[in-house]
């Protein structure tokens, strides 16, 4: 879409929204690409619509359009993300309201959807360092635990999540195998540290007492927050059915602490504090061994994602110095894994 001339993009978007919403007229202003996301595109715009009925009510709404270039290594589906976001919104999880989905490449070159724009901050470094967010730092551990419990309560049957594959007998084993397959497909060099981590994980597959919706990318980098705390949970493209402890382990991954290593949960609080808050909100107990399994898995998974992002550049799908440089971050996850499994 970057290749689309801005006026042409506005014209196509206007036509799309008018048809989808059955509006009398649509006006798009302030369209701009938002920073962040090496392989994903987020566009912000203001949309004024006039309803096609006798009232002709005029509404101006802040919106964002989400679209990833088609050639991403780990395939994601806009349609599933759209459906899960809609269900989360209906269940009062703090998420942006989603409006329209397009899977027709003729519109903007690739699948995309349009949702409400929630204003606020997303840079985790600011959350962890700025004076402005000191109150947010206080309240967010409990908020994040409560929201996560809320996500895990979303009923996949009620919301017709029939597009998800069943995790099978062991969600943990399924996930480990899936990422091992990705790793074997993508890695260009041997990674003995990852091999050690795979062996460690395979020897410690937890029994899965619960099977729930798993957000799949629950970390502070995917939260819109303000000085008062959490405003919205973003990036549902990796949502799936599985062991809810996967999300608990993922939020403990070292890369999201931005150096605040004495507070393992996103640089915000201790594991124990987060586990207690989650137990209180969910009524389910957190087995520290299972959480540790998923934390090791999370670091390994992030390591494989760094390889995947570097491959996206190396293979020429998206040429980007940022994606290229992420290839040299793989070793950070290797060191963390050695620290965790020794």
């Amino acid at each position: 879409m970057a290749s689309l001339e801005p006026n042409e993009m506005i014209r196509r978007l206007t036509d799309f929204i008018r048809a989808e919403g059955n509006f009398k007229s649509v006006a798009i202003e302030n369209l701009r690409r938002m920073p962040g996301g090496a392989s994903r595109e987020i566009w912000s715009f203001d949309c004024t619509t006039i309803d096609d009925d006798r009232d002709g009510a005029e509404r101006r709404r802040a919106m964002v359009l989400r679209r990833d270039p088609g050639a991403h290594k780990i395939n994601t589906s806009r349609r599933n993300e759209f459906a899960v976001l809609r269900a989360a919104f209906e269940e009062h999880v703090p998420v942006p309201e989603v409006f329209w989905l397009s899977e027709d490449p003729a519109v903007l070159g690739a699948s995309f959807f349009i949702m409400e724009r929630v204003d606020g901050e997303t840079l985790a470094r600011r959350l962890l360092r700025d004076e402005k967010f000191s109150q947010a730092r206080e309240v967010m551990p409990a908020q994040l635990a409560e929201i996560l419990a809320q996500i895990h309560r979303i009923d996949p049957v009620k919301h017709h999540f029939d597009f998800f594959t069943e995790p099978g007998e062991s969600a943990a084993l399924t996930e480990v195998k899936r990422y091992e397959e990705n790793f074997r497909l993508l890695a260009l060099e041997p990674h003995p540290a990852f091999e050690l981590a795979f062996r460690w994980l395979l020897g410690r597959i937890p029994k899965t007492p619960r099977k729930t919706l798993v957000h799949g990318d629950y970390r502070i980098g995917n939260v819109i927050f303000g000085p008062e705390g959490v405003r919205s949970i973003l990036d549902w493209e990796l949502a799936h059915l599985g062991d809810p402890m996967e999300d608990v382990g993922w939020i403990c991954v070292r890369a999201w602490r931005f150096g605040n290593d004495q507070k393992p949960v996103g640089g915000l609080c201790s594991r124990e504090e987060f586990f207690r808050a989650y137990e209180k909100a969910s009524g389910a107990s957190v087995d520290p061994e299972a959480a540790r399994f998923w934390e090791v898995f999370g670091n390994l998974r992030w390591g494989i994602i760094t390889i995947s992002q570097a491959r996206t550049h190396i293979d020429g799908f998206v040429k980007s110095v940022e994606l290229a440089s992420i290839g040299r971050r793989t070793a950070e996850t290797e060191l963390e894994l050695l620290d965790l499994i020794e």
């Binding site: 003995p192 040299r328 971050r329 950070e332 290797e334 060191l335 050695l338």
Partner: peptide, 13 residues
């Protein structure tokens, strides 16, 4: 393995 990983990081970070 730790030595190799640390050597990579002495370059990368």
């Amino acid at each position: 393995v730790r030595q190799s990983v640390e050597d990579k990081l002495r370059v990368a970070n």
